[in-house]
Amino acid sequence: MSTTATASASGERTKAGIRLCTRQDLVPNSGVVAWHEGSQIAVFAIPAGASTDLELYAVDNHDPFSGANVIGRGIVGELGGELVVASPIYKQHFRLRDGQCVEDESRRLRCWPLAFDGDDVVLLQEDSIVRA
């Protein structure tokens, strides 16, 4: 099963960055969660306009309001033109592009830069961003 294949390969450092998972692991218009060195990263894949490719967003899976690790399981949507994910517990919205909570200015989720490297989804590192 593909799970095993990706699991063994994740965390591997490639030229592009750190490999998290593959394209097949993603669910368009929705989120999945990847483990990375003790962090839980919620990865969202949104079809970008007319093109067939997916835009990637990565925010912290930890919901600051409930204290549970659930953001990756929230509904993705659009509020006032911004892409957001709604926490499945108390329903606050967080912007995908910068993690900012719409309802509470003082809360913001940690974000990571992500990109496709072929069929791999990779976490861009400072140094890899420079090279990319």
Binding site: C21, A34, W35, N69
Partner: peptide, 21 residues
């Protein structure tokens, strides 16, 4: 349906359970 079962993974790249639970 294996496609559907794919979604039932706490982490897509790791078999561990959520350590915070």
């Amino acid at each position: 349906d294996p496609e559907k079962l794919k979604r039932f993974r706490t982490f897509v790249n790791d078999k561990r359970a959520d350590p915070d639970i």
